[in-house]
């Protein structure tokens, strides 16, 4: 399958400093990428560069097979963007806001009207079509902005914080919608702080930190790089006896065992260890009330990566401080 995005060594600086530093990654068509990182990590800059809004100082990108610095208009014709701020003109009605975009995107008057009506219906905003957007709630603005991003049936979607400001029902609706869009074969770049939604939606994750790509890949692959094995929990209905602990430790594939108040926490090489473990416990007439292999979630992976980055930066600061002190400067 061809890549929807192929970014190589993208670098972009602002007067305030480097926003992106040699960022490289690729996203196969039809996959969802979660672009993660703290505020100021470079997520929005990445989206802007890929959509031909900002020019990189160095590096090249191909988006849907096109170079955004050369064919920016064509790239933007085939991508849809939900910016973090909905960016609706409050002096226009919902319909006017959408028809403006539809007309610029090449729809004729009738086509624009039909498409806008359909999307407003889909997003539950048809009744507010002729109201000025001034005074709309964050959720309503977000829905209108999402409808706007989908007007032209884009092949690639950039969604910047699509659920921020939404209530739980709205969040669920948007996540369902993104899942539907992904199932239709669209490629999606999801820049978000909400790791739960990223975990549900993303095929791959990219962790940006101060403009540098610190991790990229499938969450399970990244987890395998970080940790040896996967976690598991066994519910024994109470704390385990020493003999039980010893027997479990001796089982092939068990890497680590910790007693819990209600059973065992383990690190095992893979999930095939679980049935063998259950067989062992059954053999020893120990009741098992529940057992679950728990592969690390995207959230676990992200926080571990962030923890390592912070530790690494702390070490660098300490090293720098020591070096400075030692040289007496």
């Amino acid at each position: 399958m061809s890549d929807a995005i192929d970014a190589r060594e993208i670098t972009r600086a602002f007067p305030s400093g480097l926003a992106l530093e040699r960022v490289s990654f690729s996203l196969p068509a039809g996959e969802v990428l979660a672009l993660l990182g703290p505020n100021g990590a470079g997520k929005t800059t990445t989206v802007r560069v890929l959509n031909g809004v900002l020019r990189p100082d160095a590096g090249v990108a191909r988006v849907l097979g096109l170079d955004p610095t050369v064919d920016g208009e064509e790239v933007r014709r085939r991508t849809g963007v939900l910016t973090e701020n909905a960016g609706l003109d409050d002096r226009l009605t919902t319909r006017e806001n959408l028809e403006l975009t539809a007309r610029i995107r090449g729809f004729n008057t009738r086509g624009a009207r039909r498409r806008v009506d359909g999307l407003l219906e889909r997003f539950g905003m048809a009744e507010r079509a002729d109201d000025l957007t001034q005074g709309f709630s964050t959720g309503q603005r977000k829905r209108v902005a999402l409808a706007r991003a989908l007007l032209h049936d884009p092949e690639l979607l950039f969604l910047d914080e699509p659920t921020s400001g939404l209530d739980p029902a709205g969040t669920r609706d948007v996540i369902d919608l993104i899942q539907t869009l992904a199932a239709e074969g669209r490629s999606i770049v999801l820049a978000t702080h909400f790791l739960g939604e990223a975990g549900r939606l993303a095929d791959r994750m990219a962790v940006l930190h101060r403009g540098r790509l610190r991790a990229f890949g499938r969450p399970d692959e990244l987890a395998a790089d970080i940790w040896h094995g996967i976690g598991a929990e066994i519910d024994l209905g109470g704390g385990p006896a020493e003999t039980t602990l010893g027997a479990v430790r001796g089982l092939a594939g068990v890497l680590e065992v910790r007693p819990l108040g209600h059973g065992l926490a383990l690190r095992i090489t893979d999930r095939t260890v679980v049935p063998r473990l259950l067989a062992l416990l059954a053999q020893r007439h120990i009741d098992v009330f529940g057992a679950q292999a728990r592969p690390p979630s995207l959230e676990d992976v992200y926080f571990e990566i962030e923890r390592r980055i912070v530790a690494e930066e702390g070490a660098m600061v300490t090293d720098g401080f020591l070096a400075t002190t030692e040289t007496g400067t």
């Binding site: 208009e73 701020n85 960016g87 609706l88 975009t101 610029i104």
Partner: peptide, 14 residues
Amino acid sequence: ERRTLESMLHLPIS
């Protein structure tokens, strides 16, 4: 000021 510029910049207009 109205923060409408960003969404405009992502449209296919030169």
